[in-house]
């Protein structure tokens, strides 16, 4: 089969060259999308956030284990501490029955402040990148 001859009113052939304009910048992907679409980049950010939160939580737990778990160990190893009295008040009862509660509240309040800070920093960073 022979190719048909071009019709008379066919447009003139032109040469295609590169565009004169600079290439358009690729659309910026907001960081939210990266987090959202489980891209490697997004996962790196979430891992960073989780790591920071976990380190904070672990430090609180370690303090708790040392403080709370240390007392029975102290009573066991040094029997003299069991009946220690200051101004006729039994120290063991005061520590475990009273002092421990305000200390716990203080530790919890400290944790909440730090955790809120970590999240605020993360939110701010995501907004700047978007």
């Amino acid at each position: 089969m022979r190719p048909l001859p071009p019709p008379d009113d066919a447009p003139q052939r032109v040469r295609v060259t590169s565009s004169r304009r600079a290439p358009a910048a690729p659309a910026r992907r907001p960081l939210q999308t990266e987090l959202d679409e489980q891209t490697t980049l997004g996962e790196v950010y979430v891992r960073g956030l989780m790591g920071a939160q976990f380190r904070l939580a672990a430090s609180i737990i370690v303090v708790g284990v040392l403080g709370l778990g240390g007392l029975p160990l102290l009573f066991w190893i040094v029997p003299a501490t069991r009946s220690l009295r200051v101004l006729d008040w039994p120290i063991a009862w005061l520590l475990v029955g009273v002092v421990i509660y305000p200390v716990t509240v203080g530790v919890a309040a400290y944790y909440v402040r730090r955790a809120d800070r970590i999240e605020a920093d993360f939110t701010e960073m995501v907004e700047q990148q978007s």
Partner: peptide
């Protein structure tokens, strides 16, 4: 994990 740990301020 992103859902559990990302703060509410970040709109996913």
């Amino acid at each position: 994990m992103a859902r559990l740990h990302t703060p509410e301020g970040v709109e996913l």
